[in-house]
Write a protein that binds this DNA or RNA. Structure first.
Length: 659
DNA sequence: GGCGGCGGCACC
DNA sequence: AAACGGTGCCGCCGCC
């Protein structure tokens, strides 16, 4: 569709009009869903609420004030509260929050065009309505700020909020006309984008008898609501625990900065990389160990990251360690103390934004704030995870997969040795070390468990430490250079790239199926220009067949092809892990037993799920048992991979205790 | 004064 | 940094 004839918005302001709209949309909506959009007081999913509403079936479009019409039976019960009607939105989770913030629930199935667009092309830049309406339907959208220019703030007068701007524009007759046109357009365009994408997804086969639209309906549609529930619940934070650390941390950073400044003769800001370069490479005359990436501009500068500073420290630099220490504190202080505190809402909980379509592999992502990169308890002196707590009278249950990605590698590769080792309950890394270095398996396990390893056990541990990064590396498509560096770091001795290469070779000799799996994945990707996960979701990698030319040198194309090859393997593994976690979450959310004890899913960190449940032994026990059962059989009790998806579940008052 | 690039680093 | 995959966010700094 290169252009679309757009009907005028029908502004609803009488009982008769709302009834006419309700009746009309009920009929068409039962067939093909109703698109819904809100103009709101702001972007906060907990504090803001709708001011204007719009609905469309793709033929007519309607707009109205949220007050009073959101609560009108035709809207509240006839459309949004009607379990038979699919509500379609662009980032529908947001509109679900806004609507709920005004006390109205969307109860039926929900469709999200952002997720649909991502499924259609995960590599696309921009799945928002402005981009998709234009590219897919030829509809040119009006910018929000064009209709509702927000007054800028000054020193003394705060900036206008979105809500104030909308109300101000609506008060003016000319502005009102424009606002009505604008509000009605979003829902209308959303419906058109959805119809287009539905058509595309139906026509995209992913397996005999299955297309991407089936996949969308089976997995992504229910997942949207699961994520909405999780965002709605939030995660309780013990703010006192975070605040108690602010003073000492700030003081520690100041002391380090003052001490170094005194010594070097000028006031340095340790957070400033250019100032650190001045200190190390101009004043102290160190040689750059490595250069930065340089980004798009290509301006490569000497790096001052932790590896470089550690190297300088071993060469006798007394500042390096202090700077590393300062960086650690600064990171925790900025991101996880100040940062997290600024996200705690009135209910003492953090409500993150869980992005269903943020990644190219199908993983979930979390933002505003990111709760998927909270420092892990082990090694965090500031105990950030202790601040993540259960509500009064409740308890957290944490369940996580054991080596999920390696299990998937075993499943896909069907490697006999790898599957046998896992199926006999062996520690995979110890088994690999045994095979690679002819060590004794039981002794390897004993060394791993030992609190005070003997010198013989240290050797065994080094074997296991050698093997571990290779396992990860296979999933990432590692090369000998980076493996060598990783091993050098891990083993605290120089490992050459030749030695690393020999270890990779040995690894493949023990698990020949793994090497074959990688080769087959490359070949298939070259042939189809995409790869698929367990649930047949696609990642398109057309660049895998890139040839030089077009201003691109042969060397460049080689790099691009190699990268795409790594991505093809990684996506099948990482993407399948994401499928498994997704399926487990959907099953858990609708599980009768978990619901019977009111176990509420709060967060997913890729291979880990966290619930909040009533603090009584029976409820906790049921949650742990059920969580484990569901995660180990995410596709139901009858579907098994070639290896078991072993899961461990624990409970506690805080995230740290429950893990 | 807002914005985007960059370096660095937290997680799986 | 890399021939190691996928994220999000901090502070700094230069630009407009």
């Amino acid at each position: 569709m290169s252009w679309t004839l757009i009907p005028a918005t029908e502004w609803v302001e009488t009982e008769q009009q709302i009834a006419e709209m309700g009746q009309y949309l009920l009929n068409s909506g039962l067939e093909n869903g109703v698109a819904y959009d809100t103009e709101t007081t702001g972007l906060s999913t907990v504090r803001d609420f709708p001011i204007m509403l719009s609905f469309s079936d793709g033929l007519r479009r309607f707009a109205m004030m949220s007050d009073p019409w959101l609560r009108h039976p035709w809207v509240k019960d006839g459309l949004l509260g009607n379990p038979q009607i699919t509500i379609i939105g662009t980032n529908i989770k947001f509109d679900m929050h806004m609507t709920a913030n005004s006390g109205v629930e969307i109860v039926g199935p929900v469709e999200d065009t952002v997720t649909q667009s991502w499924l259609h092309n995960e590599n696309r830049f921009g799945h928002g309505l402005k981009d998709t309406a234009k590219d897919y339907c030829g509809i040119k959208m009006i910018e929000f700020k064009e209709i509702f220019p927000m007054r800028r703030g000054t020193k003394h007068v705060p900036a206008e909020t979105a809500g104030e701007a909308i109300r101000r524009v609506l008060a003016d007759p000319e502005g009102r006309k424009k606002a009505i046109e604008y509000a009605g357009l979003d829902a209308f365009a959303t419906h058109h984008v959805r119809d287009y994408l539905k058509h595309c997804l139906i026509n995209e086969s992913i397996a005999p008898g299955h297309n991407l639209w089936n996949y969308y309906q089976t997995w992504e549609m229910p997942f949207t609501r699961v994520l909405w529930n999780m965002e709605r619940r939030g995660f309780q934070i013990c703010t006192g625990h975070l605040k108690a650390q602010q003073g000492p941390m700030f003081q520690a950073m100041e002391e380090i900065e003052a001490s170094i400044s005194q010594d070097i003769g000028w006031v340095i800001n340790i957070n400033s990389v250019p100032q650190l370069r001045k200190l190390f490479f101009e004043q102290l005359k160190y040689k750059p160990l490595k250069m930065t990436d340089g980004g798009a501009s290509g301006d490569k500068q000497p790096s001052t990251d932790e590896e470089v500073l550690s190297h300088f420290a071993t060469n006798g630099c007394k500042y390096s360690k202090m700077i590393i220490e300062h960086r650690k504190i600064s990171k925790i202080y900025g991101t996880y103390i100040e940062g997290l505190l600024s996200w705690v809402d009135k209910d003492l909980r953090i409500h993150t934004n869980l992005k269903q379509s943020g990644t190219v592999t199908g993983r979930l992502s979390s933002a505003e704030p990111n709760l998927q990169n909270i420092p892990r308890a082990k090694g965090d002196r500031f105990h950030i995870r202790d601040a993540f707590v259960a509500d009064e009278g409740k308890r957290l249950v944490v369940a996580d997969y054991d080596q999920l990605e390696m299990k998937i590698m075993a499943h896909f590769s069907e490697d006999r040795n790898m599957c046998d080792a896992i199926n006999s309950g062996k520690d995979l890394h110890c088994f690999t070390a045994q095979e690679m270095f002819q060590a004794n398996y039981d002794e390897l396990v004993a060394a791993k468990k030992s609190k005070a390893p003997t010198s013989e056990q240290e050797i065994l541990l080094a074997m296991r430490q050698t093997v571990k990064p290779i396992g990860f590396g296979l999933i990432y498509g590692i090369g000998p250079v980076s493996l060598a560096s990783q091993l050098s770091d891990e083993l605290k001795r120089e490992v050459t790239k030749e030695e690393a290469q020999r270890n990779i070779r040995k690894y493949f000799n023990i698990f020949p199926g793994v090497e074959a799996f990688i080769k087959e994945t490359h070949q298939e990707c070259h042939r189809k220009e995409y790869v698929q996960t367990l649930l047949m979701r696609k990642r398109r990698l057309p660049q895998i067949n890139a040839r030089g030319g077009g201003g691109q040198t042969g060397e460049d194309a080689k790099g691009i092809v190699a990268e795409a090859r790594r991505q093809s393997v990684n996506t099948r593994i990482q993407g399948t892990a994401a499928d498994i976690a997704k399926a487990a979450m959907i099953r858990a959310e609708y599980d009768q037993e978990l619901n019977s004890v009111d176990a509420r899913l709060l967060l997913q960190i890729h291979d880990e799920l966290i619930w909040e449940v009533e603090d009584n032994p029976e409820a906790v026990e049921i949650t742990k048992r059920r969580a484990k059962a569901i995660m180990e059989h995410p596709f139901g009790p009858d579907f098994n991979l070639r290896v078991p998806l072993t899961t461990e579940a624990n409970s506690g008052w805080t995230w740290t205790e429950a893990k």
